[in-house]
Computed example of a mutant assay.
Amino acid sequence: MTKHLDRTEIGLLVALPLLICIAFVLPKWIVNYVHVSMGTGLVALGVMIQMRAGLVSFGQGLYFCVGGYAAGMTGKFLGVTDFFVLLSAGIAAALCLSFVLGFLLRRYREIFYAMLSLAISMILFGLLSSTEELGSTDGFNLPTASYFGWSPTGETARLTLYTLTCFIAIGCAIALNRFLKSRVGYVNEAIRENELRVEYLGTSAHNAVHLTYVVAAVVSAIGGVLWALPLGHVDPEMTNWTTSGQFVFVSILSGTGNIAAPLIGTFLLEIIRVYAVELSPNTWQLILGSVMLFTIIFLPKGLWSLITSKQKSSKKIGASAPKPGE
């Protein structure tokens, strides 16, 4: 892995204090959307790193739900409220489940990978919807988080959870950026281009896909915990196909060119949804679909391609500019 911070990681570190500061400047409803978007943005990141290997997961809501439910069940049945214990429970549950399922999914590619991941996610949706102990289709509430015995209330509790979410989200983004620049990350890109050639070179494509699947699952579970705690509720819709489709939507909308793209794209999606519902309560899905359609047609590499295209054009202008004395 790279030892020095690259431009993306520096940008993320610069964004961290800005994210924390907006909690004291912007209206509370915007801050709430930023807070929730960081949780779902991590799930979109899980989808993105799989797309780098040419794999599209239509069932990433599975681990989004596993993380939220593991944290909720730890609080509901064990009476634990500590934030770090709840987060650890979500990570452990996703890690164990993805490690086992990875042996199955690593064998499939393209539409078979997408449909199998979706099928497994819908199995969990059916189980949770029929389990009365977990609230069935209504789900159940999570406890208010505490921190090593400290139990803040009111605005202090909200700001504490928001600040921790900022640190964890940025930390996960930097870690995933390092992952994409590691040996496994480059192998994933090679798998997307020509898996057979990767095998001929003596590298196991199955192992690389398996590891990527586990990493994506853990990050998605963290997102599930960070999403569920501020809302204080979990329900089976977290693993429904519509939820998983939104994560794929964000990844396509934002693009896979940079690790920060899905985090920004998730917030943009939330804002578009808010105003779409306000403008057209009965047909707001049509507005989202239109945005998706125009993005695919005019920006097939996602919104991040606007930034990269500007950077390339500025480099060309700089290279073509006459040097002093010429």
Rank of each mutant, 00 (worst) to 15 (best):
M115H: 10
F179M: 15
F83H: 03
L5N: 04
K316C: 00
I10E: 01
P324H: 11
A71M: 03
S204A: 11
E270F: 01
V291K: 04
L211R: 14
E9C: 02
V34K: 00
L286D: 05
L128G: 09
S220H: 13
G224L: 12
Y213L: 13
F58P: 04
I307L: 08
P17H: 07
P143Q: 08
R109E: 11
I174E: 09
T2L: 01
S244Q: 06
L299I: 06
C166M: 13
V25G: 03
A89Y: 01
F179R: 14
L286A: 14
R178F: 15
L263D: 01
L26K: 02
A173K: 12
T163R: 07
E155T: 14
V209F: 05
L86V: 06
V100E: 03
A93L: 07
G79K: 10
L164R: 02
Y200H: 11
N258H: 04
L12I: 05
L101D: 01
Y147P: 02
L269K: 01
E189C: 13
M292N: 06
G202Q: 08
R107M: 12
S305G: 06
S57Y: 03
I123G: 10
E270D: 02
P322S: 14
S117K: 08
Y33P: 00
K315C: 02
W304H: 10
G318Q: 08
T81M: 04
H4V: 07
S251E: 01
T8N: 02
S204Q: 07
C96Y: 08
D235R: 11
L279K: 01
G185T: 14
F125T: 09
Y147V: 07
E133A: 15
G126R: 09
S320A: 15
A93C: 06
I49T: 12
L101T: 13
Q311G: 03
N240W: 11
L42W: 08
G41L: 08
I252N: 00
S182E: 14
G154F: 07
R109C: 05
D138N: 12
T2M: 03
V31Y: 05
